[in-house]
Simulated scan of single mutants.
Amino acid sequence: MTEVLFYHLSESTLEDALPGLLERSIGRGWRVVVQTGTDERRDALDQHLWTFRDDSFLAHGIDREPFCEDQPVLLTTGLENRNGAQIRFLVDGAAPPDLNVYERAVFLFDGHDTPQVEAARGHWTAAKEAGHAITYWQQTPDRRWERRA
């Protein structure tokens, strides 16, 4: 059974929230795959992860580059787990693959974007029906995560 977390972005953007979540995942010794809905979003996140903080960057690659299977964080639009990740982040309403191969799956969705909220609801239902352990997290006004369900 996979632990499935739903992170409701209400106070910050994906670009603000994702790097910290990726750093924590890497800190646990996990390989990570981030699945986006479009090539454009994947490429924008690729650029952002190199420059999101002046004193740091996240080592990562994208699925169209050689040796992507060696990356600790892999950005993709596909369903494969090419880098052997233990955790999969799904953003922008990306349709998930079989989540059973992961220890954890994280759906990040923009609470101000109706199609993303509707997609998250559908993914919640599917994950629940599949028997996964599900939790729902929402941002507080100070951008911390609070478990709501």
Rank of each mutant, 00 (worst) to 15 (best):
F52K: 04
G29K: 06
G84H: 08
D142E: 13
D43H: 11
E146P: 01
D55S: 12
N100S: 15
E103V: 09
L99K: 02
F89E: 07
F109T: 01
Q138P: 01
R82C: 09
L108P: 07
R147D: 06
Q71L: 10
D142K: 15
T114C: 04
A130N: 11
K128V: 15
T13V: 01
V33Y: 01
G20C: 05
T36P: 01
A17L: 10
Q86D: 08
F6G: 07
T114D: 14
A120C: 05
A119W: 12
G61Y: 00
V106D: 08
W50R: 02
T13I: 01
R31K: 11
E11K: 01
Q86T: 06
G131H: 14
L99I: 09
D98R: 01
Q116G: 04
S56E: 14
H112R: 09
D113N: 15
A130H: 09
L58N: 02
E69P: 05
L75I: 08
A59I: 07
A133I: 10
D55N: 14
V91D: 06
E40K: 15
S12F: 03
L90W: 06
V34N: 00
E15N: 03
G84D: 00
D98Y: 04
L58G: 05
E69H: 15
A94I: 09
H60F: 02
T76W: 10
Y136M: 08
T135Y: 07
R24S: 11
H8G: 03
G131K: 09
W145D: 12
E146R: 15
Q139D: 04
S56I: 06
K128Q: 14
L5M: 05
Q139T: 11
L18K: 01
R121E: 12
V4P: 02
G61L: 00
G27F: 07
A133L: 12
H48D: 04
L45D: 00
F67M: 10
H132Y: 14
D110E: 10
A127Q: 01
Y7P: 02
W50F: 06
R148A: 10
R104I: 11
A94L: 12
R88Y: 13
R148C: 10
L58M: 05
T13A: 00
G93R: 12
S10E: 10
A130T: 09
R88C: 13
G131V: 07
G84Y: 10
F67H: 14
I62S: 11
Q116R: 15
S10D: 07
D110G: 11
D92N: 14
D43R: 12
L14F: 06
T13F: 04
M1W: 05
Q138E: 10
E80R: 11
L90G: 10
Q71C: 12
D142R: 15
L14A: 03
T135P: 00
P115K: 09
